[in-house]
Design a protein around this nucleic acid. Structure first.
Lengths: 146, 146
DNA sequence: TATTGTTATACTCTATAACTATA
DNA sequence: TATAGTTATAGAGTATAACAATA
């Protein structure tokens, strides 16, 4: 139980640090943490509003405002599905994708001081441990954005 | 560089999952993520407003509202410092401390399915890797809350 | 009737700017 | 004058409830 305490502690502190990094980088582009995440999700998906809400753990009404603001900035677009006319699909725009790519690079750079402190095999080990913690199969296949 | 991508990816996803867990547990007690963190910080500190703002990375004006709402719920108290009468010290109340303890236990329980998936030595290894990532000295001494 | 999404409402979180009190 | 906090203001994020359109 004692080792667990230290692990939970390290996980919580690491996560808050990560959020601080992401929040800072996002705010440099006038993006909230949620907008940042939204953009990341849309890089390889074209979900409907309800699916996005489920992904993000938010109410559908929250998504309406979130997507509306992102659309107003030209980062995403909404399109009515032809099959089911109730459904609204959300997609990232070229401008949004470009911004997302720049954000990703900034995050990698911001974390470099930490990741550089680890040897190559430790980076691999840490990745695998985190994936195991999440209950994921570490097949080495392509990883998906958050 | 490729291994770094996977590591950054794992860190980001783990952190968002952690935030989701903390957000859910907090909301079960009508606490925002920030209130949760505030309570955790005050468990072993008695800082002034400005120090708290620095810890949390927030503006002092944000702290005023945050602490005001927590105080209204009886979780923290504000007291004017006798030496410098401009300064306001913030302390957790017994009720606040009790709630913080319950939250901590809930977090440990919520993460157990993941941490149980790791062997004991892997838990130790993961803790050390995260501490190294953060640039901390893993002296084995008592850990501090976020 | 059930589902998808938006709107109205209310509250928290957040920063900026202006203010008060103390030093 | 400089520092510690608060207040006023404004905008984003969030959920609940009521609604519209479609199925």
């Amino acid at each position: 139980m004692e080792a667990d305490d230290a692990l939970v502690d390290a996980l919580v502190r690491t996560s808050f640090r990560m959020m601080a990094v992401l929040t800072r980088i996002g705010s440099e582009h006038d993006l909230s943490l949620t907008q940042l995440r939204l953009l990341g999700l849309l890089r390889d998906r074209r979900p409907r509003m309800t699916e996005l809400a489920a992904f993000l753990g938010l109410d559908k009404s929250t998504l309406s405002g979130l997507v509306e603001r992102a659309e107003r900035r030209g980062l995403v677009v909404r399109g009515k599905s032809p099959e089911d006319r109730r459904v609204v699909d959300v997609a990232i725009t070229p401008a949004g994708a470009e911004l997302a790519a720049r954000l990703e690079e900034q995050v990698r750079l911001a974390l470099a001081p930490g990741t550089d402190r680890l040897r190559a095999d430790d980076r691999v080990a840490l990745t695998r441990l985190l994936d195991t913690l999440a209950g994921e199969r570490w097949t080495g296949g392509p990883t998906n954005a958050p």
